[in-house]
């Protein structure tokens, strides 16, 4: 199926771009008339995926984060967020609630759990040394209500 509208975005993995990234995605899907909760769910999930690229994928420096948003018939939104960073060795383990490789004690290990529960679908593909791609999917059903 071909999308009825799409948008691509790439930006440097600086933490000051996290807010820009989630706001840009929210602005692009505004035509679908999502309600407050749907917008907030999508912004939160996008923020999780983008922050992971910045904090984990490019932990040793600055790289490029790629976002591709597609809108399909029936108000289905598909968001792909990618980095060309370090990748994940064991994706299944990484997706377990509370699992984190962060050692400062300031990360909860709940990013993937939030993406999974706030969106309809979550798919993660990764190759160590090559990078990580996260696909988020959600249908906007509220029509603003």
């Amino acid at each position: 199926m071909k999308p009825i509208n799409e948008m691509k975005l790439s930006f440097e993995s600086r933490s000051c771009n996290e807010s820009f990234a989630r706001s840009a995605v929210a602005a692009f899907i505004a035509v679908l008339d999502p309600n407050v909760e749907e917008i907030s769910d999508i912004k939160t999930a996008v923020s999780e995926a983008v922050t992971n690229c910045i904090v984990h994928g490019y932990r040793d420096g600055i790289g490029v984060v790629y976002i591709h948003v597609k809108i399909f018939e029936g108000a289905k939104v598909v968001i792909i967020i990618k980095d060309k960073g370090c990748g994940i060795g064991d994706v299944k383990k990484a997706m377990e609630p509370l699992y984190t490789t962060c050692e400062t004690g300031e990360r909860a290990g709940l990013g993937f759990s939030i993406m999974e529960s706030f969106m309809d679908k979550l798919k993660v593909r990764s190759r160590p040394g090559k990078g990580t791609s996260v696909t988020l999917e959600k249908s906007i059903v509220s029509k603003g209500k």
């Binding site: 912004k43 909860a108 990013g111 939030i114």
Partner: peptide
């Protein structure tokens, strides 16, 4: 707005 960084 808050994401998992807020939980941390």
């Amino acid at each position: 707005f808050m994401d998992s960084s807020g939980i941390g």
